[in-house]
Design a protein around this nucleic acid. Structure first.
Lengths: 230, 230
DNA sequence: CAAATAGTGTCTCTGAGACAGTATGAG
DNA sequence: CTCATACTGTCTCAGAGACACTATTTG
């Protein structure tokens, strides 16, 4: 190795997705300090001296969402370190993808002037600070492909849900329509995807819908066939 | 953001794969300096002050392989930054995955005492310095899934290759046998995967085998069906 | 009753996989 | 000739997708 060890700052940035009103939403914060003061950005912050990357991401998730213990999913997405991406100096950010059940109203963290959910479809490239639009685009693509092979769509749903709620989650993120009958079969044939709780819904028009909770599977066999929009 | 900006060192580490003698091999270097002197490790080094992460990975690839211009594929894998993973201090490494055509005999770079190709199957967890075994395991899994959806298997082949050579590449990395007939059809039906050059082989027993070169597709539609080993 | 929703039956078509068969060239 | 390799034909089975249909509950 070389003997030069240039000093970097390392941050984690979070792409936090949830579903609100049939649309995929992402958590944005309005920056309270320079650079990019008053601009919208992904939540994030510096990694501390004795902190693992995953730990820093979990900490930021709690701080920036104001949630006591987010029950969702959190995984590393990619790292971004182009010189000049942060005017303060050489900053490498490790981006994380988080999926949260349902809209807990976000409360701004210590450094954020405001926080809000924004529909992903409404965000333009120029809206976001730093290179956060590129990170967001990568995150959307990752989320879409994850639904195929993992049961993580359940993390967007309440603890107990109907198959139709689950289907609407897929339809929202993939931006397409799925046949209710075929979707039901696909979910049923993916071993360990969901488990019937025995309870049913009541109140809506139509028959009682059985309730399910997430099953033990971490990978779906067979996968849920993906239909692309158009 | 917080006002504390702890200083990190940022490195890139490379998982360089090639196929030698029907086995997936990875490039390892014997470290010439502490820590882990005389231990085998993935090639890598510190990111320079004005260097992008991708650029640093490309530079290290050239330096550590001694190749003038590696014609393979290079992409980011993941980042690893657990405190204590490097005894020198707080080091975050961005791991890259590289796929190279065929065994150019590695020449040690400036800091490496030696470099060699090692069959992945022969490597035990304790053989490698730092947390490099974990990085290697992640890279193998990434490489396997890439073959399904991308034409990157061609990066392991010479500029012109037969369908059988390509099939052997899949068999090596997936650790399984594929039906030559079905594989041929799968490749032919994936638009833009390969293009016939018009030339044929001669010299081996059997009929002349048409030669192909990589096609323009970056994603395979439909994908090459993956068969898992067992 | 009508309307809405959950779930099943069933048909069609495509593609994966197995394997037989054909063409070509080396020795 | 025999043998090995490259590729095609064809059959079977499973799953995706479309859609008709039944069952159940609310209003």
């Amino acid at each position: 190795m070389s003997s030069e060890h240039p000093a970097f700052a390392v941050t984690v940035d979070l792409v936090v997705f949830t579903i609100v009103g049939g649309a995929l939403n992402v958590l944005l914060i309005r920056r309270g300090t320079e650079p990019y003061a008053d601009r919208w950005a992904l939540p994030g912050g510096f990694v501390r001296v004795d902190e693992d990357l995953d730990t820093a991401a979990e900490r930021e998730l709690v701080e920036e969402t104001g949630l006591a213990e987010p029950a969702g999913h959190l995984e590393q997405l990619a790292s971004y370190g182009t010189p000049g991406r942060d005017p303060r100096g050489r900053v490498v950010t490790v981006a994380y993808l988080a999926l949260l059940p349902d809209l807990p109203t976000p409360t701004a963290g210590t450094d954020a002037a405001a926080a809000q959910w924004r529909p992903v479809a409404d965000i333009d490239a120029e809206d976001l600070a730093f290179d956060h639009h590129r990170i967001l685009a990568d995150a959307v693509e990752r989320a879409r492909s994850m639904l195929e092979h993992t049961p993580l769509a359940t993390t967007f749903c309440p603890p107990e849900f109907t198959i139709d709620q689950l289907r609407e989650t897929y339809e929202t993120i993939w931006g397409t329509r799925l046949d209710p009958a075929d979707f039901h079969r696909a979910v049923a044939s993916a071993a360990g995807f969901v488990v019937a709780t025995g309870g049913t819904t009541s109140g809506g028009a139509g028959g009682p819908a059985p309730l399910y909770r997430p099953g033990p599977a971490r990978v779906l066999h067979p996968p849920i066939p993906r239909r692309d929009p158009y």
